[in-house]
Design a binder for these strands. Structure first.
Length: 575
RNA sequence: CGGGGUGUAGCGCAGCCUGGUAGCGCGUCAGCCUUGGGCGCUGAAGGUCGCGGGUUCAAAUCCCGCCGCCCCGACCA
């Protein structure tokens, strides 16, 4: 493959639209171009890499016994109404009408369609288990598309749906997918971490996310340094460390003027107290009803947890006017003592004495608060996010560490919700009608591609794992006007291609510097420099992108030497 | 949707405050030169200054409205 006959528009400068490294590299290396926010064209090299990721996914899904199908991207809206998910997901769905004015949606995911298929085609336990998957474009009207392919309105996803006769079967299917995912990401050259996750809008019981650890990741997670516990911050159950009793525990509450101190930091500084000694009081509207929520001053409320505890369908922070009305004080001075509201408290506050809270009057706080003595708490529950340094909820010894991650895969156990709603059933061996138990398993294919770049790069550009590199080798003739150089390059390219190697020949009549810089930016794993000087010494140079190692070999030995390098690189991404 | 920023040549930017000929670097095209890390010289092409309205003799510049894009928050593969 010749550079001059390709479309590889590399960019010398960083496009101002791109913030994170992987997004910049996608654009600079000429892999993608933006059409509009959240909508991207894959250019030839980007498409080649994407295809390789898809193929790895396909091979591993097949290996795990899943069956590839292809479902429509466009669905009748009615199907979504049948499971009740239209109401849940209508804001993220693109809605269109056909010429008959029928309501259609573009699928953000395919549980309904897959289940509908199974409802029609599966009648007997002999047909189970069944695992159907597809690799297809999904559409989501994201609130905020971001970071290039990371959060796009249109993206390629591998989605699989398993149907089993019983719980043991679901467990096997789930495990098979979990293992397949580990193999897939390993083969893509990614270091991932599987974390316990919330099942969100999917519903269902168990769920794990596969996270690519990266500072640019959108998700928070914690992992234990002693055992294998790891969880998404949405669900992580960090255990409180540190004191619950503070100075003044025995004293009655006392009002202290704190003019203008309305933030945790300001109040903590005012009292010269650690933020953990403060109790943060937030007023939420749970289905329109005001509720007070208490968490330690150094923690954030976890709204997912809160929503579950309150069993609320709509949960929002109360507006300033409501807060003033129910607490009798402006924002920043709410506290649990004497507050005429339902109060729920984070379990980490249990036994808090000598704490500091708002006084429910303007510009004042209360000290010496003993939560059990001075306030009426309706319920204690886990309502806050875990914090770096918390104790591990699984093992006594470990401490949790906070990390950032990119969610590239997600596996769920879904139960019978969809099958029941859509009438999927089968007859068991005894002739009794049963409902299949479902699991679903997603991989963001386009996002995975970008995650690789986020994790595998240096200051000069991309460092492709050989398994998904657009090409394995770049042949770089330093001066194409020097006939012997070009000839040697052509010969090597032909030999490698004949051996089944993907090769990019940079046949541009450009300055060496330009070609070297582009080669580093593009980041193909193996590069062969061919130039007049080394040729005069009877050698060409093989340079590996990932470690910069340079070996000189005679031109006639180059194909074999390159193959040997390639073999080593492949071994590094073997599952 | 709320908050912040930004929109001038393919890309990166200056000019705007203080209204008066639209500029710089890179890239592109032609020619010369050069050939082991974004080389040098000469010449050229390329712009409805995001869109609409207003103020003014005159608007990239001032005013009003709209739109796109980027960042922070709620959503998720």
């Amino acid at each position: 493959m010749r550079w001059t006959q390709q479309l590889i528009p590399t960019l010398r400068e960083v496009p101002q639209e791109a913030e994170i490294a992987s997004h910049q590299l996608l654009l600079r290396a000429g892999l993608i171009r933006k059409l509009a926010g959240g909508l991207y064209t894959f250019l030839p090299l980007g498409r080649r890499a994407l295809r390789k990721v898809e193929q790895i996914v396909r091979e591993e899904m097949d290996r795990a016994g899943a069956l590839e199908i292809l479902m429509p991207a466009m669905h009748p809206q009615e199907l979504w109404e049948q499971t009740g998910r239209f109401a849940v997901l209508k804001d993220v769905m693109f809605k269109i009408k056909d010429r008959q004015e029928r309501n259609m949606v573009l699928g953000p995911t395919h549980e309904e369609v897959a289940t509908e298929l199974v409802a029609h085609e599966v009648q007997s336990y002999r047909q189970l288990p069944l695992n159907l998957y597809q690799i297809q474009t999904k559409f989501r009207d994201e609130i905020r598309p971001r970071f290039g392919l990371m959060r796009a309105k249109e993206f390629i996803m591998k989605d699989a749906y398993s149907f089993d006769a019983d719980e043991a079967g679901v467990e096997r299917s789930y495990r098979a997918m979990y293992t397949a995912y580990e193999r897939i990401f390993k083969r893509c050259g990614l270091r991932t971490k599987a974390v316990e996750a919330d099942s969100g809008a999917m519903g269902g019981s168990a769920s794990h996310e596969f996270m690519v650890l990266a500072d640019a990741g959108e998700d928070g997670l914690v992992e234990c340094d002693a055992c294998c516990y790891a969880a998404n911050l949405d669900r992580a159950e960090g255990l409180h460390r540190g004191p619950r009793e503070f100075a003044g525990a025995e004293l009655p509450p006392a009002v202290v003027p704190t003019p203008g101190r309305r933030t945790m930091a300001a109040v903590a500084a005012f009292f010269q107290a650690p933020p953990a000694r403060l109790i943060k009081t937030l007023i939420y509207l749970a289905d329109q009803q005001p509720v007070a929520v208490l968490v330690p001053g150094d923690r954030e409320v976890n709204e997912l947890k809160l929503q579950r505890v309150l069993q609320a369908t709509a949960l929002v922070l109360a507006d300033d006017a409501t807060i003033a009305r129910v607490t009798g004080a402006p924002v920043g001075f709410a506290g649990p003592v004497g507050l005429p509201l339902r109060i729920v408290a984070d379990e980490k506050l249990q036994g808090y004495r000598g704490a500091i809270t708002g006084a429910n009057q303007p510009d004042a706080h209360l000290i010496n608060v003993d939560l059990a003595r001075d306030a009426r708490i309706a319920a204690f529950a886990d309502l806050s996010n875990a914090l770096d340094g918390d104790s591990c909820p699984r093992c006594a010894a470990g401490r949790l560490h906070a990390r950032r991650g990119i969610e590239v895969g997600h596996v769920f156990k879904l139960g019978t919700k969809y099958c029941t709603a859509l009438g999927a059933g089968y007859l068991d061996a005894a002739g009794v009608r049963q409902t299949p138990i479902m699991g679903c398993y997603g991989i963001g294919v386009t996002r995975t591609l970008q995650a690789v770049l986020e994790q595998s790069r240096d200051d000069h550009g991309i460092i492709w794992p050989i398994s998904i590199a657009p090409c394995a080798v770049e042949v770089l003739p330093i001066n194409v006007q020097h006939a012997p150089t070009l000839q040697a390059a052509l010969a090597l390219t032909a030999a490698l291609e004949h051996a089944g190697c993907d090769v990019l020949l940079d046949d541009r009549d450009e300055r060496p510097g330009v070609k070297f810089k582009d080669a580093d930016l593009l980041g193909l794993p193996i590069r062969v420099n061919i130039g007049e000087k080394s040729l005069a010494k009877g050698v060409v140079e093989i340079k590996l992108r990932h470690n910069g190692s340079l070996t000189a070999v005679p031109p006639e030995q180059a194909p074999a030497a390159v193959q040997a390098c390639a073999q080593e690189l492949w071994a590094a991404v073997a599952p």
